[in-house]
Amino acid sequence: MTPGSFEYHRPQSVDEAVALLGQYGDEGKVLAGGHSLVPMMKLRLAAPSHLIDINGIDDLKGIAEDGGEIVIGAGTTQAEVLASDLLAESCPILPEAAALIADPQVRNCGTVGGNCANGDPGNDYPAIMIALGASYTLRSADGERQVVAADFYEGVYATAIEDNELMIAVRIPTHADGAGMSYRKIKRKVGDYAIAAAAVTLSMDGGKCASATVALTNVADTAVLSAAAADALVGSAVDDKAIDAAAEKAMADSDPAEDLRGPVEYRRAMAGEMTRRAIREALARAGGS
């Protein structure tokens, strides 16, 4: 591990952290769990002059319910997501996805905020947050704003976050309509990014699909919200025909690159297959069959 030289900061409060970000702008980089940033620094693909370590900020931790929303502090680790009774009860897709992220060592350090804010299309939470209709709380010295997850991602490592902003929390609407959720991921091995993965939420009313969202991981430059796939489900009985139609739409909305995970044709097919599997699981959980 031989990164370039940098200055290390360890703010104790959010105010201190955003002050540092304001001061250093694009020279500064936030260190949360470090599992994306540190490997990049090791390869010198990232060479920030100032590393702002937010692990000492208690205000960024914690999972709570707040007026129809679940609020997860950006510094909450994947391990804490896995251990949360609240999430297990009201948003089980998150702990289920956390279990698919890397390995226990990584999950002990890796954070929700890091996973959401990094802008790597391989990260698992962006698609899930998009599917859940979540929004991100961003704060700078100038104040705070909310950005809807679906509007946050602009490209590979390119997001709506400004250089002087820190992601504070993720806010997820509670799904009071009995929606079923599922995240299905195919990967080569533990610790790998997805070949493809799909997040699905789905609610049923009188044997018909009342609402649905479908979002995909690592099959384009950003997480993909496939409105067409969701549209193929809404109003249907979510039978095989509708599921296949949704999978076809998801495949059409994906634009994967060939890499060692497989050629484009395979990765697109897996976007479809994971969509199928996630729909079936979400359907079962929504009380459908």
Partner: peptide, 28 residues
């Protein structure tokens, strides 16, 4: 099931890291 040192046709070695080169863990 997974190990290969892959080159592209101009001789770039692809995936020469343990992210891509398959060393099975206890899970696999």
């Amino acid at each position: 099931l997974g190990q290969e040192i892959v080159y592209d046709d101009t001789g770039n070695v692809l995936g020469a890291s343990l992210m891509d080169y398959f060393l099975p863990t206890a899970v696999e």
